[in-house]
Amino acid sequence: MNIFRLAGDMTHLISVLVLLLKIYATKSCSGISLKTQELYAIVFVTRYLDLFTDFISLYNTVMKLVFIGSSLAIVWCMRYHRVVRRSYDRELDTFRYWILLGVSFILALVLHEKFTLQEVFWAFSIYLEAVAILPQLVLLQRSGNVDNLAGQYVFFLGAYRAFYILNWIYRYLTEQRFTRWISCVSGLVQTALYADFFYYYFISWKNNAKLQLPA
């Protein structure tokens, strides 16, 4: 464990807690893409298949349970909570995410570390995570100015993967046999997708204006 990875995991945790706070405190999920949340639930379930077979550390197991639990709780809230579900922007959140699922799965069948069920699903979850934010970014652009909690959620989510890239560089430099090409390339793609959002987020923060994304 290095400081970059810890910072990444904490930032990721914050992004999920910010989202849960927004939904719980305001009883509203306006501006949040249910499709992105469902993709993230799939990412965590397919990545942590080793939850019960491999014990790495208490930290690792607890964080896996928190991520799976919180992502499923958010999806449940947005779908079935009688108050929250009314504020879901159903007509704006129309990204055809089956494409993302299909492409990620086909890519995982072709590119993986070992051709085992667990490894193929692990690679699938890595590729899917890289593109899971797309429905949310599209929703932010369609709903124009974002309310700040939705913007913060995306900001922390982007920052977490950027920290992980530093972690991979650090591990590559300090550990001889560390080669995680699937994670590194996918993580770079993921962070690049956030780049334009970061730019507009920074501009709005600098001008102390509401975040306006170009439609």
């Binding site: 491999d54 790495i56 896996k64 570390e113 070992k114 992980y164």
Partner: peptide
């Protein structure tokens, strides 16, 4: 305890 499949990251 390093995990069997080597994925020690979240």
């Amino acid at each position: 305890l390093s995990s069997i499949n080597g994925h020690d990251e979240l």
